[in-house]
């Protein structure tokens, strides 16, 4: 005679209390950490892909202004690509033939920004994100063009470091 298999009795309508204390503890710690790292500045700046910012000991928070970034592959005004970058040099097609430091497409975009955001443009502030390996010769071209377009207040964006 075959032995009868044991089947435990299951109460279908049974309710049980879940202990969520430890989960609440975990969430509290997570919440404190996130509140601490919550962006406290008035400006949120998205890091540009491919740009490794240098670290600096500066303590100044971000301010608003025209946003220029230069990565190893492209020069951007805000989100718009204005010139190609190859071997850390701006493509010659973007450079004015009569002035080797003048980046024409960037100047045009800055002029457009001048018209569209008159109030912000009056401050003459440029938030400049550049890759740490970019040589000064390339940076200078951007600085020169920004200065010519009426943006002499250059704000070099860095990451917090020692």
């Amino acid at each position: 005679m075959a032995r009868k298999r044991f089947i435990p009795e299951i109460k279908k309508n049974q309710t049980f209390g879940l202990n969520i204390t430890s989960m609440t503890d975990m969430f509290t710690i997570l919440l404190v950490f996130l509140l601490q790292s919550f962006a406290s500045g008035e400006i949120n700046l998205d890091p540009v892909q491919g740009v490794r910012l240098p670290s600096s000991s500066t303590e100044k928070n971000l301010v608003d202004g025209a946003r220029i970034s230069i990565s190893p592959t492209e020069l951007k005004f805000d989100q718009l690509k204005v010139a190609d970058v190859k071997d850390n040099k701006i493509a010659s097609s973007a450079i004015d033939p009569n002035d080797s430091n003048f980046i024409k497409p960037l100047f045009d975009e800055l002029q457009k920004f001048n018209k569209d955001n008159e109030k912000l443009a009056k401050t003459g502030k440029v938030l400049f994100q550049a890759d740490r390996d970019t040589p000064y010769a390339t940076l200078r071209k951007v600085m020169y063009t920004a200065s010519m377009a009426g943006f002499p207040n250059l704000k070099l964006v860095t990451t917090a470091g020692n």
Partner: peptide
Amino acid sequence: LAVMVKLVPVLLVSSAFVQMLIIETELPQ
């Protein structure tokens, strides 16, 4: 817990994990 579950994703999305700062400099015009 219900409040925290809602708050955590909001903060996760809006948090800046890389702190960016600026060095001020003026260009000569």
